[in-house]
Design a protein around this nucleic acid. Sequence first.
DNA 1: CGAAACGTTGATCGTCATCAATGACGGTGG
DNA 2: CCACCGTCATTGATGACGATCAACGTTTCG
Lengths: 206, 206
Amino acid sequence: MLRTNLAFLSFIERFYAENNQEKNITLKSFPSGFRFIEQGEKIRNIYIIKEGITKCFISEENGKDFIIEFLGKGEVVGELEVLKRIDCLCNIETLSEATAYSIPDHFFLKLIRENIEFTEILLQELSTRIIQTSTRASFQQLYTLEYGLIKLLRLQAEENINVSKEDMAAYLGISVRSFNRTLQQLKTKNAINGDASLKMLLEQLA
Amino acid sequence: MLRTNLAFLSFIERFYAENNQEKNITLKSFPSGFRFIEQGEKIRNIYIIKEGITKCFISEENGKDFIIEFLGKGEVVGELEVLKRIDCLCNIETLSEATAYSIPDHFFLKLIRENIEFTEILLQELSTRIIQTSTRASFQQLYTLEYGLIKLLRLQAEENINVSKEDMAAYLGISVRSFNRTLQQLKTKNAINGDASLKMLLEQLA
DNA sequence: CGAAACGTTGATCGTCATCAATGACGGTGG
DNA sequence: CCACCGTCATTGATGACGATCAACGTTTCG
């Protein structure tokens, strides 16, 4: 659930240190809770996250939010919009203080044309995203909330990060009320067998 | 809902005609209803569809199917698996007679390294997929079936293709029974206002 | 000054009513 | 025989509303 891409990060850090005479790449800092990309706006830079955690989410017209993914170190945002010359699809908001390398669109496109290593990392990244998004869509569509929640808790226990209940609910596409309710049902049904760290997390939440 | 990529197709046709002395690319034909990629298997070729319609779907462990997308002319399949060296994520099955260019994995990777035009088309394709998959996941998660069905019918009316009820149901992640029921509800509620071609399609189905 | 009392706020839960979606089963009609 | 529908029971998921509780700061009074 927290995606990272260390290959991307180390590439860009190397590039930033060695090949940035023209200052195409700049490093920016954001406070926690800052929305640095807004759905529907035009964009002129892509960002590669150096430090911190962000969420990438779509706000639907009915007022609900759907979190596409949590993005950490080395994840890139805005690249789809630049590649396809479209307005931003999602909002990107920091969940902690964060720093990110900012790369102007033209320079990003130039990198793709001229640096095969960069392009291959990008291809890997896009592939990973398609895989994750598709399998998740399928899963969330075909299983009940209860299964989805267990899966989410498991992911969170593995990666040992902490996300607000509000965000977890948005990740599942439900309200906080429903999220709490389902947590509680899990607990009373004792639906978790075996996994100790998962049990602890559940105790802690419900 | 029926994705195509004419840029990809014309690239590969040109390449096939002019640069295929070593016979790396071959043209294959499949009958209707043929599953030429099976979830969980290893893969050694990618395919680019020349003619015909296919469906790309995940079979979940609970026996349900989820159709990721319908793929037509110029769509590529198997490239994620080759790029990431993993087993097949989905099944690909023809819905009509179909022909496809088959490209060995090593040659596909070589094309990426050596032909920037090819790579750029591929980047476009992957971007499109992420966008479609994400927005669809969000929509299907946050709106009711009724909305989802209307959207699906609209897409189908626009693209003027015909897909079996079974497949439409799988696209929505529901059973045929539920699909029919919802169609009927749409009809009796007269939920469609304005769009004539949509109304016709609904009449025809329900 | 310090402790007790008070009010505010936000998060959570119990409960109830309701809507959304499903599964089963038998019937109907081409 | 197969695709579809009526019907019924049931599960899944939601929204609304009020009650509760903990956290926190402020006020009040001994």
